[in-house]
Design a protein around this nucleic acid. Structure first.
Length: 473
RNA sequence: GGCGCCGUACCCAAGUGGUAAGGGAGAGGUCUGCAAAACCUUUAUGCGGCGGUCCAAUUCCGCCCGGCGCCUCCA
């Protein structure tokens, strides 16, 4: 395998990936806050993380993938007088916060399953790790990075010299340009809460006892506590959306390294946003597209996955229905080619692709190795399935190999005949035979009538040299 | 104000200091009773504009125009 290079946000450069303890790789990906459905922008990031994990595994690494489920502590902004997201959602539905969390957690994994995203090795809920967070905060406190103010425990960013390195922030300038509506308890606008006992709103549903009083953890601490618990005090990769660079990940680094006194994460990867024609999609504004809204329009979840793969993860991708239509058409055509190859290979798939197929597979791996260039990798797959000089059985072997990373379910592709309800299929088969007879007697009117009739029922006929085949429209 | 990104054919979207991947859509052709599918051919002397560096720039630098993201919960 070629040398894997990844763009590290820390340092903003393409760097050779060197695992700390090869072949093991510790990977932490920020998971969802489960107060609502994931929207397709969220899902784009998870598709990216899936490509990352699958690529690492293809390149021989043993990946431990940890993902958090944020079910507490994710508060509204500094100057936002609104409620806790979880609490609001619970009140609206007349359920408990934990019921809400469970419902949307299930919905989240149902979505990622449909997108053929491999489940994380470890999924951990914030509410199951409160003691770990408290223990970690104690260490941060013991090292002198905290202060109490107004009942809350704050992290003092001025004590952490490297604060803001990930985001290229300079504290002096930030002070000057700071906003006015910040929490008045803060000494520095960028200080953040590690533990709340005084909330800006009432009815905090979940509270725990702690050395600082009864309350609940700040948002950032869960990722530090849980990642260290499962991956150790320093690990290889941490990934998430680009919006997390300046606040969430910056704060995670500060508190983690303040606790341990040593470097925490080696590689930081961030996925750019999926944006709508008129700007970004906002989960908190309530109007956003879910995977379900795509399938309601007749798209297969994998069409969306294909759509995501068409753009590089570090580039903004603009969502549009037209773009989805194109992805759908494109994927359909790709699957058609796989089916054709299957028929030509008469069910055979080479054990190991050789010759020209191997060359294309190598090129494919080279593209993945170059900062996960899915668009070029996908283009290479197209070149492969279109290459007339490659024997079908070899092409299939290489294509399925590529799909171990792309995840387009190519090996599961079947002609509709094989997946249809047998009764319905038998009925169609009968009509097809009738039409063949009509054609033999040159009764074009009847033949065309049958074809038109089937089309109305969503079935299209194709007369190939090998006979008539039918498929779903 | 600070940080960062983008502007490539009708559409989506890669990419490179030496002359533009791939897909969708369109057009022409082969095949066909007609279709469909498939296959073949075809679609940017051009990469927002203006300068600069260079033997050579779409690719580097500067400026300008246009669009977007983050800095506040958000992938």
């Amino acid at each position: 395998m070629p040398v894997l290079k990844l763009f590290n946000t820390m340092g903003r450069s393409l760097q050779e990936f060197v695992a700390q303890n090869p072949p093991s790789v510790g990977f932490y990906g920020c998971g969802p806050t489960v107060y609502n459905y994931a929207h397709i922008g969220n899902l784009r990031t998870y598709v990216f993380e899936d490509i990352l994990v699958r690529t690492l595994r293809r390149f021989g690494f043993k990946v431990t993938h940890v993902m958090n489920i944020t079910d507490v502590g994710h508060l509204s902004g500094d100057d936002d007088m609104g409620e806790d997201k979880m609490v609001r959602s619970a009140e609206e539905r007349g359920q408990t916060v934990l019921q809400i969390a469970q419902f949307y957690t299930d919905a989240f994994f149902a979505d990622t399953d449909r997108l053929n995203i491999v489940r994380p090795t470890i999924v951990c809920k914030a509410t199951d790790h409160i003691q770990d967070m408290i223990d970690l905060i104690k260490r941060i406190e013991a090292n002198g990075f905290t202060y109490m103010a107004g009942g809350n425990l704050y992290f003092d960013v001025s004590k952490f010299p490297h604060y803001g390195e990930l985001a290229n922030l300079k504290l002096e300038e930030l002070r000057a340009g700071a906003r006015t509506k910040v929490d008045e308890n803060k000494r520095n606008p960028h200080d953040f809460v590690l533990w709340f006992t005084k909330s800006k709103f009432e009815n905090q549903a979940l509270v725990w006892d702690s050395p600082w009083g009864r309350g609940y953890p700040g948002w950032h601490i869960e990722c530090s506590a849980m990642s260290m618990k499962y991956l150790g005090e320093n690990f290889d990769i941490h990934a998430g959306g680009i919006d997390h660079i300046s606040v969430h990940h910056t704060n995670e680094i500060a508190q983690s390294e303040a606790a341990t006194g040593k470097p925490w994460v080696r590689y930081w990867l961030h996925a750019e946003f999926l944006v709508m024609d008129n700007g970004k999609m906002s989960k908190s504004k309530g109007d956003f597209l879910t995977l379900q809204s795509l399938t309601d329009r007749g798209f297969d979840p994998i069409d969306f996955r294909y759509f995501c793969l068409g753009g590089h993860y570090r580039s903004q991708l603009t969502f549009s229905w037209e773009g989805m239509e194109q992805a759908k058409a494109s994927r359909k055509s790709l699957v058609e080619r796989i089916l054709d190859l299957r028929e030509k290979a008469q069910g055979k798939v080479a054990d190991v692709p050789g010759g020209r197929a191997k060359e294309r597979l190598d090129r494919f791996d080279g593209y993945l190795a170059d900062d996960l260039s899915a668009p070029r990798a996908l283009a290479e797959l197209w070149q492969l399935v279109k290459d007339p000089e490659i024997p079908p059985a070899e092409a299939l072997a290489a294509a399925f190999d590529m799909d171990s990373v792309l995840g387009l379910k190519l090996s599961e592709a079947r002609r509709e005949e094989q997946t249809f309800d047998p009764v319905f299929a038998g009925e169609i088969e009968k009509l097809v035979q009738e039409r063949i007879l009509a054609k033999k007697s040159k009764d074009w009117a009847k033949a065309d009538a049958i074809r038109t009739g089937l089309k109305a029922r969503g079935i299209t006929l194709e007369d190939t040299p090998a006979g008539t085949i039918w498929k779903k429209l």
